[in-house]
């Protein structure tokens, strides 16, 4: 369980987050949605202790993120930032292998190799495993980074806009992979998404943020209604339901 209590954050004069409280139970996919600048990425990086907590408390599985040793947290939660740029010339397999670092501190056991192979397979990278990252397309690179986070083998996975750079096929594949590992491996996934329909189709719960506050929270069918969407994004859109999945028509 991720427990966020009264968290606020400011950068200089700008208040990024206003007194956020949120509990994410273990298991399932929670999507964070909202307009640009809503504070979604900031909240994610606070949960992942990438920046210091200024006010409030956050704990993951009962471990407070600001006082638990970094090494221990790395075995509980993995994060993929949205602006991850790999400038190193590493092969895909090497990069994914570094996901195992928190467990053996660099020494890879046969179990680790099995997990690396499984991660490569899970994200359709087996054929690319000997290629250097820099020779891959943006989407392939993105998948390699997600595979690295998955290889970390943590119960909690935080992903910041992982669908960036992915075409429709791989965006769908990635979301289905995430759905699978949530259902089969019992992972808890918190994912920042801009494609509201991906959230509607694959998430168990959607948390909507706007201007540093949580403005809506519920299942896709609760949340994806014209009124709520207008309150979040500020414009009118139609919502239709196909096969029990709400689809938002926001294009025109």
């Amino acid at each position: 369980m991720i427990r966020i209590e009264n968290v606020s954050l400011r950068h200089g004069q700008t208040q990024i987050l206003h007194d956020i409280s949120l509990t994410i139970p273990k298991g399932g996919i929670t999507a964070l949605v909202g307009p640009n600048g809503a504070g979604k990425s900031s909240l994610l990086s606070l949960i992942a202790r990438l920046q210091p907590l200024q006010a409030g408390r956050i704990s993951v599985d009962g471990f407070p993120v600001d006082t638990t040793p970094n090494r221990d947290l790395a075995r509980i939660l993995a994060i993929l930032r949205q602006d991850s740029i790999v400038t190193s010339r590493l092969r895909v397999r090497e990069l994914v292998g570094f996901g195992r670092f928190p467990h053996g501190r660099g020494r890879l056991t046969p179990d680790d190799y099995a997990i690396i192979d499984q991660s490569l397979q899970q994200f359709d990278l087996t054929d690319l495993s000997d290629r250097f990252i820099e020779t891959l397309s943006g989407g392939q690179r993105q998948r390699a980074l997600v595979a690295m986070a998955f290889a970390q083998g943590t119960d909690y996975l935080l992903l910041d806009e992982p669908l960036n750079n992915l075409d429709m096929y791989f965006a769908r594949e990635l979301m289905r992979s995430l759905r699978r590992i949530a259902d089969e491996n019992g992972k808890t996934i918190v994912i920042v998404l801009h494609d509201i329909n991906q959230a509607g189709a694959h998430a168990d719960r959607i948390v909507a943020m706007k201007a540093g506050r949580i403005v809506a929270d519920g299942t896709p069918s609760d949340l994806l209604t014209p009124n709520t969407l207008q309150a979040i994004f500020g414009f009118e859109m139609r919502v239709e339901t196909f096969d029990d999945t709400p689809v938002v028509l926001h294009f025109r």
Partner: peptide
Amino acid sequence: ADRLTIMALGRDASIGLGLD
């Protein structure tokens, strides 16, 4: 050497992997 390679991935990736 492993830690140095991880450092080259940047601060956030390093902390995410439990590196000081």
